[in-house]
């Protein structure tokens, strides 16, 4: 059994903290070489059979360096392939995906219509790095299937994002007939895969946020320790100390909740959503404060501050916005005290 701390060490060695936004294609190749894509696949299927906390650990480290490779989507789709009982040559798909063939998925809610003869029309928003993917995974009500991105009727359009550390594409599918062997599952099994993908996305974004938050706070504190005004380091001013301490404390609480939930197989999607609320909220706060505490330099394109801020803002939106999860958590606990 691989310890989470070993995974974390390996990830931070492969992606050192001082090299933010590593070049995507090299990062992707390195991630595949590290065996990360095998983590969610069961040992019987040739994977490592690690729990969701293992993926979260690696994604947290990628958040720390503003990772550019599409690991959030790739780890989810490779996990779905492991559950794809109806897929022709399932084992071949798993092996190729583990070796680095990228299967994408949409991170925002899709519009899907599957007509007679399995003819698919769909709008799939926010597909990460579709330019390097061979297929995208479409999960609708009662079905889950792979669509080749080079098929006729499939268009791939890049969005111009504020967050420059990630690339998102919109994919449209028109009049595409899904081959019978390209279905991962249908009916209840497909619904289960879809639910797992949605929950996994929430956890993944939360983990990415915690990594980003920790790195951004650390960068800001280091700046305050070196920048001198009024004949002293800025870090010496208690007003600034207390702001940093509050951020550190809130981050600590968010981390504790996320790792407790990631390691708890009984945690519901809403429980993971609560962890995302705290993780994404503190990433946003830290990134927001980072620019203020850096002063003018934080507003320049050459400094890294804005990269964290833009990623934090995007993370708020991926996997369900925070108000949605707050309300669900409220309803869940209200119902638990039913008397």
């Amino acid at each position: 059994m691989i310890e989470l701390s070993e995974l974390q060490d390996a990830a931070s060695k492969a992606f050192p903290a001082d090299q933010l936004r590593p070049e995507r294609d090299a990062a992707w190749q390195l991630a595949a070489e590290m065996g990360w894509l095998m983590m969610p696949v069961s040992e019987e299927a040739g994977g490592l059979g690690l729990g969701r906390d293992a993926s979260a650990t690696v994604l947290c480290e990628m958040g720390r360096v503003l990772g550019t490779a599409p690991l959030i989507s790739a780890l989810l789709t490779v996990q779905a392939l492991g559950e794809a009982s109806e897929l022709t040559d399932q084992q071949g798909w798993i092996e190729r995906a583990c070796a680095g063939e990228y299967i994408a998925m949409n991170l925002d809610r899709a519009t899907i219509s599957l007509g007679a003869g399995d003819v698919l029309d769909a709008t799939l928003p926010a597909v990460p790095d579709a330019d390097m993917a061979s297929h995208t995974l479409v999960f609708g009500p009662e079905f889950c299937a792979l669509v080749p991105l080079d098929a006729p009727g499939v268009t791939v359009t890049e969005r111009h994002m504020w967050d420059e550390s990630r690339r998102l594409f919109d994919v449209t599918v028109a009049d595409h007939t899904i081959e019978p062997g390209m279905f991962l599952a249908k009916g209840a099994a497909a619904t289960a895969i879809g639910d797992a993908l949605r929950t996994g996305l929430v956890l993944a974004v939360a983990a990415d946020s915690l990594g980003g938050a920790a790195a951004c706070l650390s960068m800001t504190v280091e700046y305050l320790k070196t920048r001198r005004q009024f004949d002293r380091p800025l870090a010496m001013f208690q007003a600034l100390k207390h702001r940093c301490a509050d951020l550190k404390i809130e981050l600590g609480a968010a981390e504790a909740l996320l790792w407790a939930r990631a390691g708890d197989e009984a945690a519901t999607t809403t429980d993971i959503g609560s962890a995302k609320v705290l993780a994404c909220d503190i990433f946003r706060k830290i990134a927001e404060e980072a620019i203020q505490l850096h002063g003018g330099i934080g507003l320049t394109d050459e400094h890294m501050c804005h990269l964290f801020m833009k990623r934090a803002m995007l993370n708020l939106q991926l996997g369900g916005d925070l108000d949605v999860w707050r309300e669900r958590a409220g309803r869940q606990v209200l119902a638990s005290f039913a008397d």
Binding site: G252, A253, A254, A256, L257, W259, A260, S274, A275, V277, L278, D323, W325, R326, E327, R328, A329, G330, R331, V333, L334
Partner: peptide, 27 residues
């Protein structure tokens, strides 16, 4: 207020915070 969305959100936020206090004390 069972269907007051604002209250439910604030309650959900509090729940997350209380759970995080438990989690960090446990840790």
């Amino acid at each position: 207020r069972e269907n007051d969305q604002g209250i439910l959100r604030d309650f959900g936020q509090l729940v997350a915070r209380v759970d995080s206090a438990c989690a960090i004390a446990d840790q």
